[in-house]
């Protein structure tokens, strides 16, 4: 009889699924913005981990502070990445990562 009491494992399974979906977006999608969304999913998965471990391991609020930093960094990265994507669009008129291949061996 499995345990239906909501515990740490439930949250970790959600984060693993988010991670897997994010990874899938990253490896299969060609659109740079889609890849960015995949990265955001992975970062969210990591954040759920931090906060869940924090609650169930009785680790104070360190995990929550860490997740604030992660959110900050995610925002910074998204800003830079989108600026680069817009710039690419201005130059190439496409944001599909594999159509942009001037640099080849």
């Amino acid at each position: 009889m499995p345990n239906f009491q909501i515990g740490l494992t439930h949250f970790l399974v959600i984060s693993s699924l988010l991670f897997g979906l994010g990874l899938f977006a990253v490896v299969t999608r060609r659109n740079a913005i889609m890849i960015l969304m995949g990265i955001e999913l992975i970062l969210n998965a990591a954040n759920i981990n931090f906060i869940a471990f924090n609650k169930y391991g009785q680790l104070g609020v360190d995990g929550q502070v860490i997740s604030i930093f992660v959110i900050i960094l995610a925002a910074a990265e998204a800003v830079i990445a989108l600026a680069i994507v817009l710039n690419i669009y201005n130059n190439f008129k496409t944001v599909n990562a594999d159509e942009i291949d001037n640099l080849k061996e």
């Binding site: 949250f11 969304m37 924090n54 609650k55 997740s67 604030i68 900050i72």
Partner: peptide, 23 residues
């Protein structure tokens, strides 16, 4: 649900309000 009320609000403000709009 994980007792992280402040993070939840931050998540809404920054992700939903900021990063989402950017995307």
């Amino acid at each position: 649900l994980l007792n992280a009320d402040f993070i939840a609000i931050t998540q809404l403000l920054i992700y939903v309000g900021g990063i989402m709009i950017l995307l």
